[in-house]
Design a binder for these strands. Structure first.
Lengths: 150, 150
DNA sequence: GGCAAGAGCATGCATGTACAAGTAACCTGT
DNA sequence: ACAGGTTACTTGTACATGCATGCTCTTGCC
């Protein structure tokens, strides 16, 4: 028999993942460009502000930020340094664990996040819609995503 | 009326996209680690080899690689330099356009790609399954993706 | 034919991220 | 109470990528 008479499931998954990755990269690039141009925020910075703004007391520890962002701890150290330099956050010591560091969002931080949020959501919506229009086979996927994850 | 009585669709899209991004990052990280550890290949390098291997005559121009990978043209210059240094590709001049450069995959390149392919597809499959198991609300999404994009 | 505009790729520089090692604080067992 | 191991974060370093620019070649227009 031939080595591979029918496409393997791995092949199928790979093609699927390739499409998903392309979609993801395209949308993320557009989001990053819009946020950077209109608000001077990087994508990770915007998401960090979002996590902080929605956290109780507006504060999170480094590791919680890292987990929420899917980033390395060292990346978060430098990310927080950028936020701090822009006065969007300040660092606060953990009272009961002197190793810990809370990053607390400031009022300017909340304000900037609120401004950027409109851009983010609007850009995301149009990017998704345009992607679906350009590649109609993406439509059912986005539909399912919106219903099951929205 | 209150400012936002019901969640806006932008909000919903944002939550959905956040989940999708987390899934994507998680799976890509696992793929990258597996390819790097077991075959000494980066993710972009693996995908470039895949594009080249499936292209007619096993060759592509820089800009076609860039488009297929979703990367910058300058990134592709350096990516191809890495592939070339590993003898996975060689550079060939474009006969009818002396500005153009073809990147051609070599036999070692094809061989390495074939080896890595098994790792890639296996890792991808298990990563997707585990993600679905860890977060059951991801299951319908993956199901739709596999059916409509596989 | 020659010149300006543009295409295709390379290079300098900046940035964001990961990995590894370092430092300080906490915890556990004895 | 203290020694060794662990946790939380920071810092040094390396690298892949993007943007702006430069160089070579092509194309179109006069």
């Amino acid at each position: 028999m031939p080595t591979e008479p029918t496409p393997t499931s791995g092949d199928s998954d790979a093609r699927m993942w390739s499409r998903l990755t392309a979609l993801h990269a395209q949308v993320e690039t557009r989001l990053a460009a819009a946020l950077q141009r209109r608000h001077g925020l990087g994508l990770s910075e915007y998401r960090a502000l979002g996590l902080l703004a929605e956290a109780p007391r507006g504060e999170l520890r480094m590791q919680d930020l890292a987990a929420g962002l899917g980033l390395n701890q060292s990346s978060v150290t430098r990310l927080v340094a950028r936020l701090h330099a822009a006065d969007f956050t300040y660092r606060d010591a953990c009272p009961d664990d002197k190793r810990g560091v809370y990053t607390v969002i400031t009022d300017p931080g909340r304000a900037r996040r609120q401004e950027a949020r409109a851009t983010y959501e609007e850009t995301l919506g149009t990017a998704l819609d345009e992607a679906a229009a350009a590649a109609p086979d993406l439509a059912p996927l986005l539909d399912t995503a919106r219903r099951s994850l929205g």
